[in-house]
Design a protein around this nucleic acid. Sequence first.
RNA 1: GCCCGCUUGGCUCAGUGGUAGAGCACUCGCUUCACACGCGAGGGGUCAAUGGUUCGAAUCCAUUAGCGGGCACCA
Length: 902
Amino acid sequence: MITDDTMTEIPKTYDPQQAEHSHYARWEREGYFAPEINKDPNAPVFSIAIPPPNVTGSLHMGHALQHTMMDVLARHKRMCGYRTLWLPGMDHAGISTQLVVSRQLKKEKLSRHDLGREKFVERVWQWKAESGGEITKQMRREGASVDWSRERFTMDEGLSRAVREVFVRLYEEGHIYRGARIVNWCPTDQTVLSDLEVEKAPHKDKLYYLQYPLKDSARRITVATTRPETMLGDTAVAVNPDDERFRDLVGQMVLLPLTGRTIPVIADDYVDPAFGTGAVKITPAHDANDYEMGVRHSLPQVFVIDQNARMTLEAGEDFAGLDRFKARERVVEQFQELGLLEKIDEYEFSISRCERCRTVIEPLISTQWFVRMEEVRDLALDLKNKEGKPRFIPETYEKVYTNWLENLRDWTISRQLWWGHQIPAWYDEAGNVYVARDEAEARAKAGTDQLTQDPDVLDTWFSSALWPFSTLGWPEQTEDLKTFYPTSVLVTARDIIFLWVSRMVMMGLKFASDRPFDDVFVTGTILDKHGQRMSKTKMNGVDPLEVFDKYGVDATRIMLAAVGTTDVRWNDKQVESYRNFANKIWNATRFCLMNVEGAESSGDPFANNQTELPLHDRWILSRLHKTARDMNAALGAYAFHEAVQLIYHFFWDDFCDWYIELTKAIITAAEESPERSVARARMIWVLEQSLRLLHPFMPYITEELWQRLPVRHQDLLHPAYANAPPTIMLASYPQSDAGLIDERAEVEMQAVIDLVTRVRNIRSEMNIKPGDRVPVLIGAADDQLRAAFAANSDQIARLARASSVSVSGRLTAPRASARAALAGGAELAVPLEGLIDFEQERARLHRDRDKLEAEATKLEAQLANPQFVERAPAEKVSEARAKIADIQQRMAVLAETIEGLK
RNA sequence: GCCCGCUUGGCUCAGUGGUAGAGCACUCGCUUCACACGCGAGGGGUCAAUGGUUCGAAUCCAUUAGCGGGCACCA
């Protein structure tokens, strides 16, 4: 009974804020997110370690995207009865966070050195508390079903202990070493960087041709360089050994201008005779390649640039103290004055910049800590080659991953920062090094307490590499570690496959004795509307919180889930359409709740004798079970987009557009009756199942509505959660019952749907007023089809707005009718005395016939081809024959109809 | 330079060896007792180009073009 009261109770438009307000707090309070909620001792385990967001600020759309996918997986598995853990946490993000705080200090006209290490680190912890708080707030808003009781931070005591343990073991086994190597130095951040933290970008600049006079002749040898200032540190000129032009010069000495030094001409295969002048200046101290060559030829290293990117005293009095770019200008000037500048070309090459601050990297020789990767690399490669793990989705990343591993080089792990894990190495006064788990152990090893700890910290990715097991208590063999490691899947963006994914695999195999995860799901990227990556510097990012506010969390989530693995351009319209979907769900439920009286049922209202169920009930059951089957399969295969499409169309098209409309007449009957009650209960039952199917994607609205349904909530929980306070979160995820998939019901229902659609089409084309009712005549020779039409004639009348529906074996209709031929040889007529323009009607029928004929021609050609009949699968051939039979039947009906109109 | 991905209706994207799909946008009609964030009916694509494999290709292979990404020591 629809009363004004119920109408006003539920608003017409869904207000996401209202639903988002309270449920999360309750879920968290009741402990639904913790695996302990699962009381089944034999429950399978599902676990995910979150890629820990950096504590540098707030979450962006990429986080929202990843978190949505992880949450969909976690919620789905939880509803399937898995002991589910999604472990949250954050990353201290060494450089990035130190930069953020340094910038804050700068506004107060302070530097970190003004504060000193201890105070500065304290200040960063303060920032961590703020930023971390913001992030957890955002994740709660997202609806992320993470177990907050297990939240971790990479600089927690436990994780720090794991870091030291791994460092010490790697050192003791000889995988970690300290030494002077050429490294990437950022003069702004004052730290070394790994190759992966350096960004290479095309750069337009100049190529300078410098002439160096030979010592014992009047000849000059010309070298080309993009960095003239480094010539002050040259210690050789190299040519290719096979290069005829310079063969006689090899071994001779060159007078290095501006320095007064003499340097040799050497021969090395590395030199490409075809490039530049064929002669290369060699600066071992300031170029990675030259460094290698210097090692090969035992060349001296002359340091002319310091850690601030200024020229050193060794560069000579004219240059000492100059910035490297100023020095470049001056070197060029002086070469010009000396007549040794041959020419300057415009030139495009790639330049290395610090990923964080964009400063041009200065290659320097510096003493740092490194990890030899060979052993762990081989562990990872073996796992991939022998067991195919981890499996990448999409597959294309498999090759990227193995290729990178195969070409792996030593990992520079020390950083000249204050924020991070300080390297567990101590030096005595003589400079001897003691690597230990703590200072006490170091003292014991050194036999003295006069020790100084290495001031450097570890690369932030060192601790991230341990994340999947350090968060579970390693090196202790905790219950959590035994239960949840290896984790099930890693969901991540593609840009950290090397930085993070590969290193987790290597470290997991080495220290946790097993792979860290089975699957790696690599998400697509959200681009801006022009196809550009969203970035802070470009200011083109879309803030997830704003989208949440505007369209609701659920709409945003399901839109993001649908992204899957491909890059997509951001478009508000897409979220809007899912906002509309949320509203549709809201209103469908609203309708059910308006017609709830008598529907309070116990058990399955479809569970009578199934053969007695009306067609539309058998049909919706079949559709529901197919949808459940396909959704479970899609989610199991990480086919998020497919899962979203399935539930979207099931809910909107099948349930709302057809099922509710078909059952409406009974549902809204004024008189109470057993039929009305059971119909209501069935509608609510299908709705309830739909909400469960939707829940992983749209947790808030589904919980909000589910709680309002007149069902026995407790009974719907998965057995593993039988005694938990009811929530849709812990309800069983619908599983398909193959016995309820009813192909015949689907065929018959489709015939009814097609029939109704054709009548509506005729009404529309004939401009029949929506309020006008017209008679509908149906002819169907097929017994089953005829029975289906007859049994549903009331619904057909309602949906097609017919004044009457008559079904017979053979159609007899007035000449003045609009007609159509349907599948299965059925025909349809709408008598429209006075409204029919016979000419027009004939044209319409001819159009229909032409379409069929075109199709028939294709099929006939196919069947006329003996090779098709011989070679195509028998199934395809019989399919084609069945199709053509149907088309011919329909054409015959049409031909007769057209004949009748003459 | 090498490798990878993408190229499907106006837009954003699905899809698949057997007669092209969705959402948005568009056209027409609707205050039809859940929903105008809606309902009903429509229009619109030779699936980048060329060649090949196949009974059959938008779907597989090769080449080309455009776009995007990754890797690389060319001064």
